[in-house]
């Protein structure tokens, strides 16, 4: 940007927001310290109510922090909101395009709002309509578009002025898997082409996992972890080995034996199943099976799953991120089996 550029695209110190409604105070964001470098793609991951949207709304000047500071694109959100707004794009949780407007009209007027000339707003709108597959629907009333089309239109609106920094609040919520994949591709492509810094929020684990190089885990308004998905998993969760036995008593004995043999493992047993959570479980599993076989406790089946970000979250907070979000995702993509034998 201009003058006041630091090397950070975003820099917050003790960023805090408390809402008071009906004499009750909710601390939506508590003392957030976050820095984002130019060109990064960061996902804020957390359950509903964690404070993700509130964080984004402070960073985009929509609400004033209760305390703490935030610099975005080199400008202070509290004292230089105008400059911040000029530098960023924001795609909120709702639909940016007015429902009684036409998509292309909204794109152009949004471009004008950022100070673009009519001609350049028009050609940029055409370009985005093209690249976001909106050609068929851009001149229809927004209310007649499907959820996926509307979301792509929102993305186009956020990009109209080619911001150096783009915020997306739950960009793929409500989209079917195909549209979600499609949208993720657009975000990745955008970044590759323009080097745009992207900050998005999500409660989809797989989205954070596959899309972001850096995941900031937020819970109850606090930052609880901040790293690459791979490193978070390595540091905060082990592989999961699920063993099934023919008899409940075998399972119980096997569980006891594994506890003795692997002091660092977390072992749970229920009915005929034993679940072992341990670092590099994929490497330990074969020897474990042989050991159990030798002790007269042969496993009937085994499954080894890599840790997910949900495991990370569970480990960090003691709660599953999936609670309340199971409806729109099949349980199967919780596990990512990498080896099955009998």
């Amino acid at each position: 940007m201009t003058a006041q550029t630091t090397q950070h695209m975003i820099e917050t110190h003790g960023l805090t927001k408390a809402f008071t409604a009906r004499k009750r105070t909710v601390e939506a964001v508590r003392g957030l310290d976050l820095t984002v470098a130019p060109g990064e793609l960061v996902a804020l991951l957390g359950p509903n109510g964690a404070g993700k949207s509130t964080t984004l709304r402070m960073l985009t000047t929509l609400i004033a922090p209760t305390s703490g500071t935030a610099r975005v694109a080199g400008y202070d959100v509290a004292t230089q909101p105008q400059q911040v707004r000029r530098a960023i794009g924001y795609i909120g949780q709702g639909n940016g395009a007015g429902h009684n407007q036409r998509g292309r009209d909204e794109l152009v007027s949004h471009g004008l709002a950022y100070g673009m000339s009519k001609a350049s707003a028009r050609s940029r709108a055409d370009e985005l309509v093209d690249s976001l597959d909106l050609t068929q629907v851009a001149d229809r009333k927004v209310s007649s578009l499907s959820g996926g089309q509307r979301r792509r239109l929102d993305i186009a609106m956020g990009l109209i002025h080619a911001p150096a920094l783009l915020f997306l609040d739950e960009p793929s919520t409500g989209l079917d898997p195909q549209n979600r994949a499609n949208l993720q591709e657009h975000v990745v492509a955008l970044r590759e082409r323009y080097g745009t810094t992207v900050v998005l929020t999500t409660h989809y684990l797989d989205e954070a996992d596959s899309l972001a190089e850096r995941v900031v885990v937020i819970d109850h308004g606090r930052l609880v972890a901040d790293d690459t998905p791979a490193r978070l998993k390595a540091d905060h969760a082990g592989d999961r080995i699920t063993l099934a036995f023919d008899e409940v008593v075998d399972a119980a004995n096997a569980a006891a034996r594994i506890v003795r043999g692997h002091g660092d493992a977390e072992v749970e047993h229920a009915e005929r199943e034993v679940v072992v959570r341990v670092a590099s479980g994929a490497r330990l599993a074969p020897a474990m099976l042989v050991d159990l076989q030798d002790a007269g406790l042969p496993a009937r089946s085994v499954e080894v799953a890599r840790p997910t970000l949900d495991d990370v979250f569970l480990n960090l907070t003691g709660r599953s991120l999936r609670e309340g979000h199971t409806a729109d995702q099949p349980a199967t993509d919780q596990l990512d089996p990498i080896g099955v034998s009998a």
Partner: peptide, 29 residues
Amino acid sequence: MSTATLTPTLTAPSNLARDTAIVFGRELR
């Protein structure tokens, strides 16, 4: 889509009359 410019030409600085006209036009459409 390959010819997109990163910094679009910003012709006008924010001013009240221009902004009002933009909002007016959008509402009227």
